[in-house]
Design a protein around this nucleic acid. Structure first.
Length: 462
RNA sequence: GCCCCGAUGGUGUAGUGGCCUAUCAUGCAGCCCUGUCGAGGCUGCGACCCGGGUUCAAAUCCCGGUCGGGGCGCCA
């Protein structure tokens, strides 16, 4: 649709050039390069949909406008009006076949909308590398780089396809509070805040609230929302504010929700592979310039491998890792497992002692040393954990015992446990780190790459 | 919280006590050329994180600070 500033997007002119030849269009964008200092001038304009060359001839337009555009700095925003024409073919080396026809706009009028300061804090099209910190300090410019832009377009697609899939399985979208009164789950540090005269915290997870929604009869719910953890970690995969893709479903167990998850991930990969490979190409073009292997969207087959905790421990032991039943499976252990299962894989049936109080267990399900197993699971991709989930405890007396066993006071959780006193459906769910999934899809080596304005231990701005 | 590493023009880098009035690329400014197209050619501009110390001499060695990177822990 035309807007006040343009009749066409650049993408429309690039793709529909043939049928637009001779037609007058108005386009607007960032000046990627401005070449020519004489009687003619080439302006490469870029908007969110593509890029195109605008051709300016001094004879064809107002002299002061010609000078203004010709001397415009890179990344200035410019609007031009002119006729679409086929570009003259570039010189090609002998034997090379000429490239397909391209189009340009032969400018007759226009306007410099906003001049960019020079020099730029980071080059949008420069070949030189830029450090992540400089990029994040200037995210507004970093985002103009095509592969970065592509990553965030993919992020939107991942959320869209994920939503789409869950809705198709009967899930409803909810929103839970991010300001909470008490330590919701324990186990992690929360950011304290003042809520008027009361002490409050930023929510670490929608866990307890999405369960209450299910207990209330909403049956199947999901939420895409922020979670906050006041942990001083400093790694490529942790942030203190992250977006979590959460689901919870009544009358389901751990195996049921693993099924939801693997189908959702397959759907996302499937849709990206059929609709969005241009975005992957933009990323791969950049990766090639950095000497990196291209990423490919390989739709995973179902079911994902299930490697129960006990078996995972054995794999780690056989692989030379030092680990005992009851230990957490750490990153270097995951490397051993990942060498056998490089893609997505579930690790179900963790020891109950390692899982939160709300995870369900079945009496009699025991590990090799007799320890109680839980119905909690993780989803990993390679060495990285994507998801934590499980069947939830729906028996209020067990729930209260679990709280006590973990050193928590049931009296602090009545807002939650009261939800179980009047009939509670067995239910299950999971939380998936959106950015971690995106790291897999885009090949990003750092979670900060795929988060617009990441919040880590030392960064609260921009 | 622990371990390791780093900080040089706007950006990315070279540099291992004197060869540094500091390299290269990119950028920026100007000129030339040009229907260019990763345009090209020429000229110029621009930097050693901060504070102490060692030394005849410090970008370089030492101490402290600040900021950053990698790994671990913990987790999504």
């Amino acid at each position: 649709m035309p807007t006040a500033y343009r009749s066409h997007t650049i993408g429309q002119v690039v793709e529909g050039g043939e049928s637009l030849i001779g037609e007058e269009v108005t386009i607007a964008g960032y000046a990627e390069t401005v070449r020519g200092r004489g009687a003619i001038c080439f302006l490469m304009l870029r908007d969110g949909t593509g890029q195109i060359q605008a051709f300016l001839k001094k004879d064809n337009l107002d002299a002061s406008l010609f000078d203004a555009i010709q001397s415009a700095t890179r990344e200035s925003t410019i609007r031009v009006t002119g006729n679409v024409a086929q570009k003259r073919a570039p010189k090609t080396a002998e034997g090379e076949s000429p490239p397909p026809p391209e189009f340009e706009v032969s400018v007759t009028s226009g306007e410099v909308l906003a001049e960019a300061s020079a020099p730029l804090p980071l080059g949008v099209t420069d070949e030189v590398n830029v450090g992540l910190d400089v990029r994040l300090d200037n995210r507004h410019l970093d985002l103009r780089r095509s592969h970065v832009n592509a990553m965030f377009q993919l992020r939107s697609k991942v959320l869209e396809y994920g939503r789409e899939h869950l809705i198709s399985e009967g899930f409803q979208e909810i929103n839970t509070p991010k300001i909470i009164a008490a330590a919701a789950e324990g186990g992690t540090n929360l950011f304290p805040m003042k809520y008027f005269e009361t002490d409050a915290y930023l929510s670490q997870s929608p866990q307890l609230y999405k369960q209450l929604a299910v207990l209330g009869g909403l049956e199947r719910v999901f939420e895409i929302g922020p979670a906050f953890r006041a942990e001083k970690h400093d790694t490529y995969r942790h942030l203190n504010e992250f977006v979590s893709f959460d689901i919870e479903g009544a009358w389901m167990d751990d195996e049921d929700v693993m099924g939801v998850q693997e189908r959702m991930i397959r759907h996302i990969w499937n849709e990206v592979a059929s609709n969005d490979l241009a975005l992957i190409d933009a990323i791969n073009e950049y990766r090639a310039s950095q000497g990196k292997e291209p990423v490919s969207v390989e739709v995973p087959s179902l079911p994902f491998p299930r490697i129960p905790y006990c078996e995972a421990i054995e794999i780690v032991k056989k692989g030379g890792g030092e680990i005992e039943w009851g230990d957490d499976i750490e990153s270097h252990h995951c490397d051993i497992i990942a060498s056998k299962y490089p893609g997505f894989h579930f690790i179900p049936r963790w020891p109950m002692s390692m899982k939160p109080f709300y995870i369900h267990h079945k009496e009699g399900e025991e590990g090799s040393d007799g320890g109680q197993l839980s119905r909690g699971f993780d989803l990993n991709f390679g060495r990285d954990e994507m998801t934590s989930g499980g069947a939830r405890e729906h028996r209020v007396e067990v729930l209260e015992q679990n709280l006590k066993d973990m050193g928590l006071d049931p009296a602090d959780f009545t807002f939650y446990t009261d939800g179980f006193r009047f009939g509670a459906p067995p239910h299950a769910g999971w939380g998936l780190g959106v950015a971690r999934l995106l790291m897999v899809l885009t090949g990003a080596g750092n979670v900060r790459e795929v988060v617009l304005f990441p919040r880590d231990r030392s960064r609260v701005t921009p």
